[in-house]
Simulated scan of single mutants.
Amino acid sequence: MSADLGAARVVLATHNRGKVRELQAMLEAAGFSGPGTVVDAKSAGLGDVVETGVTFEENALLKARAAAAASGKVALADDSGLAVDVMGGAPGIFSARWSGRHGDDAANLDLLLAQLSDIAPEHRRARFVCAAAVVGPDGEEHVVRGELPGTILTAPAGENGFGYDPVFAPEGEGGLSAAQLSLEHKNRISHRARAMSAVLPFVLELLDRTGAEPSETGSEG
């Protein structure tokens, strides 16, 4: 049984409060506002979803479908990771547990660098990938992908990031790692920002169809 969601319009299938604030801000800029418009998985009383998909898109859809079914609301989820060209797209969906221990960033990074130790710079192309999925209470669903291309460095650099950020140099950033960029700038160009921007029109369409009214105080631009 889902929790009392009150005025919530969207359930974001995550326990990350930062992601909730980000989506809330995007919806407010689009004209949908008010406190509690977006709630996280915990607030909606949702349990963890076993990610049995073999692609980012499949796992994002699994989480969004579960959240929509349990809450009766528009649900949004994302799944992301690193794909290295010479490794056939690995670590891919296994990015967070590449070393065998989920969420061990240092071990994951060390293993990746060891696997690429004899790979020439011109063959170290990679990309961060994010799939974002939105599912309506009637079962309508959309899934999009955002990518940030770049290269894998030979050694970590920078203190601002997490995960693979210290060894990933985004394209067009002068060889700096993602961990050397400001958080504001990184978030603006990130794979997740691109995916969320692409999925937002579908979220707004579903909100409009399910009775959410645009705020009179929303963005005019």
Rank of each mutant, 00 (worst) to 15 (best):
A198N: 09
S197F: 06
G31W: 07
E173I: 10
L204T: 01
K42V: 15
V84Q: 11
A178Q: 10
M26P: 11
V199E: 02
A195F: 01
G92F: 07
L23P: 05
A7D: 13
G163Q: 14
R192K: 03
G31H: 08
F56K: 01
L111I: 09
N16Q: 05
E159M: 12
R145F: 00
A41M: 07
A64G: 02
L82R: 12
R97F: 01
G47N: 05
E184H: 13
N16A: 03
T37G: 14
S182L: 12
L206K: 02
L112I: 08
P91I: 08
P214F: 04
E122D: 13
E57T: 11
A193C: 09
G89V: 05
V167P: 04
L27H: 02
F32G: 01
L116T: 08
K63F: 00
E171C: 14
E171Q: 15
R188H: 15
A212M: 10
A114Q: 14
V50Q: 15
I119N: 04
V129P: 00
V135S: 02
G31V: 10
D105S: 13
P149Y: 11
L176T: 13
D85H: 11
D138Y: 03
K42S: 15
G136D: 07
P214T: 05
L109S: 14
L153I: 10
D78F: 04
R145Y: 01
G139W: 10
V134F: 06
V167Q: 08
D78E: 08
A155I: 07
T217W: 14
V167K: 10
V11M: 03
A67C: 09
A195R: 04
D138I: 04
R127E: 15
W98E: 09
M87L: 15
D79I: 05
I119Y: 03
A212I: 00
S99V: 02
P214R: 12
T55Q: 00
D78W: 01
L148Y: 11
V50M: 13
K42T: 15
S99E: 07
S190I: 02
H15T: 15
G139L: 09
E28S: 12
F168W: 08
T37C: 13
V11D: 00
A120C: 04
V50K: 15
G6F: 08
Q24F: 08
C130H: 03
L46S: 07
F162K: 14
V38Q: 02
G18T: 08
G103Y: 03
A155N: 07
Q24S: 15
P91E: 11
G47I: 05
